[in-house]
Design a protein around this nucleic acid. Structure first.
Length: 420
RNA sequence: GCCCGGGUGGUGUAGUGGCCCAUCAUGCGGCCCUGUCGAGGCCGCGACUCGGGUUCAAAUCCCGACCUGGGCGCCA
């Protein structure tokens, strides 16, 4: 039984299990706060009414020890949730050592690295746990959305032979007698599945980037929400993306409001459609030259001037990957989804013509031979298609206004951290 | 990759040359207390990352190592 399943009107004996959050011994009466995944229950022990054996056990038990408590529910306005439990038996299931490496009651704050070193304990803190409860709701909202839109969920390899798109650095690994890499994106595989005729696929999985950055918005292992859709163009998948964002916010506001309250966050469901600005308009606002990418400063400037989610469309072809569909003289059918704080997603209509794709690969200095397994799928009937990839942690970070992206991952991997 | 910053009890901190065998909070141990909800009161415990140097004197200044936070580049 969880703490939230009990209310002042609950009759008879209940059994609760959890960790000792705090013990307040006032002499004649002792209050024991027992914490579980969903909240905190007050166990009240008036000296005169409780057996000596139980009082001794409570005296002996350390903070964060695990207990099983049986007792009657008493309605009492003085108790935190309007009720308390008078224990008839208490079992110490596991004693906790002292001192604790971290204070789960949050009376004394801890720095993020101390917290991450002791992440199992850190996640006992209600506010930290709430983030991951919300993350689970977000994943559920996203899956339900895709299934509703007739997508199928797929899994593609994370151990790969070649780079996907150049750009980012890869982690080399040893694969028997060969060198292999951890995949930076499922891009090539989800496109290949369009040729296989799955029409609409999505994947939620890890992506790996070996960039040596140390910032509050980068991870070396992140979770990517990827989709690819046949017979769609860039505008079609942009609409799907903004609908998904809107749906996820709405779902969390409705179903995870308890956890938002723990976090003391209110989320504003963004209005759709999102504002669309062209790359040309964007560089004008941020004083850049055509062909430039937006640095951190440019992004911030743009974000401040727009103040909500927006798309930047029609990027110069030369700064987008080879699989991007050209458009006009030197533009492309591409887009980035931006939040004032960070880039959330990027996508495009893809090149589905074999010759054009080969040409664009060559233009970027790659050899078509190393992309044979990919290029081959474009020779025998590749439907036109479009897709995008969305960073789950970035979505959560911006939704919950977390100041560090590591807050959105249970066990983050960054430049220095490999354990836990 | 470039640049800036930081390592003081378990945790979070004060202390920038002598006033420091180191401040405060929390924690832990002991005692008092029948309505706590950051409980309160009294007593006690527990720390200067490591190595070298400067100095009459180093937590404090210098050098190096190790660990680490952040900004930028790049990247999602």
């Amino acid at each position: 039984m969880h703490s939230i399943d009990i209310d002042p009107k609950t009759k008879g004996e209940v059994e609760v299990t959890g960790w000792i959050h705090e013990i307040r011994d006032l002499g004649g009466i002792t209050f024991l706060l027992l914490r579980d995944r969903e909240g905190i229950t007050q166990i009240t022990l008036p000296k005169r009414k409780i057996s000596k054996e139980i009082l001794e056990k409570v005296k002996k038990a350390s903070r964060e020890s695990v207990l099983r408590v049986k007792g009657d529910v008493q309605e009492d306005g003085r108790a935190p949730n309007g009720f308390e439990i008078l224990p008839s038996s208490i079992e110490i299931l596991a004693m906790a050592k002292s001192p604790l490496p971290l204070d789960p009651t949050e009376k004394v704050s801890a720095e993020i690295e101390t917290r991450l070193d002791q992440r199992f304990l850190d996640m006992r803190r209600p506010r930290v746990k709430a983030i991951f409860m919300i993350r689970s709701y977000a994943l559920r909202a996203i899956r339900e959305f895709f299934y509703e839109k007739d997508f199928i969920e797929v899994n593609t390899p994370k151990i790969v032979a070649t780079a996907t798109e150049g750009g980012t650095a890869l982690f080399p690994i040893s694969y028997f007698e060969r060198e292999a890499f951890l995949n930076q994106s499922p891009q090539l595989y989800k496109q290949m599945l369009m040729s296989s005729g799955f029409e609409r696929v999505f994947e939620i999985g890890p992506i790996f980037r070996a960039e040596e950055h140390s910032t509050r918005r980068h991870l070396n292992e992140a979770t990517s929400i990827d989709m690819e859709m046949s017979y769609a163009d860039d505008e079609g998948v942009m609409r799907l993306l903004e609908e998904l964002i809107h749906h996820t916010y709405k779902y969390i506001a409705k179903n995870a409001s308890r956890y938002l309250r723990v976090l003391e966050r209110e989320i504003k469901i963004p209005d759709i459609p999102f504002k669309r600005i062209s790359y040309n308009e964007a560089i004008e606002i941020s004083d850049l030259e055509w062909g430039d990418d937006f640095g951190a400063l440019g992004e911030r400037k743009l974000g401040e001037s727009i103040g909500e989610h927006y798309f930047i469309r029609k990027w110069p072809l030369e700064i987008k990957p080879y699989y991007t569909m050209p458009c006009g003289k030197n533009e492309s059918k591409s887009f980035d989804l931006m939040h004032p704080r960070a880039e959330l997603a990027s996508g495009s209509q893809r090149v589905h013509d074999h010759k054009l794709l080969e040409k664009q690969i060559e233009e970027r200095g790659f050899s078509p031979e190393s992309f044979f397994f990919y290029l081959n799928t474009f020779k025998y009937g590749m439907p036109p298609h479009a897709g995008w990839g969305l960073g789950l942690e970035r979505l959560l970070m911006t939704m919950l206004d977390l100041d560090n992206i590591r807050e959105a991952v249970m066990f983050p991997r960054d430049r220095r951290r490999l354990v836990p």
